[in-house]
Simulated scan of single mutants.
Amino acid sequence: METKNIIIEHEKGTATVTINRPDKLNALNKETIEELHFWLKKLDENENVKTVILTGSGEKAFVAGADISEFAHFSDKEGALLAAKGQDLLFNFVENMKTPVIAAVNGFALGGGLELAMSCHFRIASDNAKMGLPETSLGVIPGYGGTQRLAQLIGKGRAMEMIMTAGMIDAQTAKDFGLVNHVVPQADLFATYMTIADKIQRNSPVAIAKAIEAVNANYKDGVNGFEVEIRKFGECFATADFREGTTAFLEKRKPEFAGK
């Protein structure tokens, strides 16, 4: 697939995926969502990619929302289909990738942009970042998982207030709420996420993938997260990474994980 709206770069096992629509503040349109799905799937299948960074081009915006012009005249059925397809193709897909995905939030992350950041496994923000779900000011609600993930991350009351007021919060407030893990100066964003990616890559890719499954299980209806954890814990014992990790510990050396 042609990459018209994203840029992909590789460095030391880390793939940086940059949404590149600066004239639209990197707003998500149908084409961009499809490109992201296609290439993120490719990266998730690539054994040489240990971490993925998702960000937006420039310093103004991570993603400043969805491209409203594409759905302003949709019917109720078309709107529901838009949300269902988007969640399946991108937002739920990112959340369930076995490769860790870190959102590097530079500037505005609004509407679908914040929803995309929340679907990542965790978030780092530049100190100029602003985040919000302004959909109710347009007569609609978040449709790409925002009502669910925001409440999971910051609590029901705070999520209700953010959604009802359609307001924005700054990066430090987002950190205080637990919406982002780190806030750093804009100039330090790249170095920070590369440092964290390097720490992740020292550990077993197999174990990390199973940990993602176990943590996510707690947020799925009808799924017992403790039972999933027990099963994934047991599965680790059959892996080469487990044998290497425990052997390296006993031999007092650093492990060399093969991801198998």
Rank of each mutant, 00 (worst) to 15 (best):
S204A: 11
E11S: 14
E70P: 05
G167K: 15
V140G: 07
I212T: 00
T239E: 06
V17F: 05
A248P: 00
L116Q: 08
D88K: 15
K77T: 12
D67T: 11
D176W: 03
F237W: 11
A197P: 07
I68T: 12
G145L: 12
A84L: 13
L89Q: 12
G225N: 03
L114P: 04
P142H: 02
T192D: 10
G225M: 04
I212H: 04
G157W: 06
G111C: 13
G245M: 10
I154W: 06
F249W: 12
L250N: 12
T173M: 09
A84Y: 13
F233I: 12
E31R: 10
F233D: 12
E256C: 06
F257Q: 04
G155L: 08
I212K: 08
I230Q: 14
E227A: 14
I169S: 05
T3V: 10
V184R: 02
L81C: 03
Y219F: 15
N46T: 10
I196S: 01
D23W: 12
P22M: 08
A125H: 00
V215K: 08
T165G: 01
A125F: 05
G58Q: 05
D241C: 02
A117M: 04
A187Q: 11
V101M: 04
R202A: 06
N106F: 03
V180H: 03
A166Y: 10
N218F: 09
I7C: 10
G146R: 06
N20G: 00
E9W: 09
A248W: 07
D221H: 15
T147G: 11
L114F: 05
I141M: 15
Q186G: 13
A83H: 10
D44V: 02
F226P: 01
C120I: 04
P22G: 07
V52H: 02
D188I: 09
K98W: 06
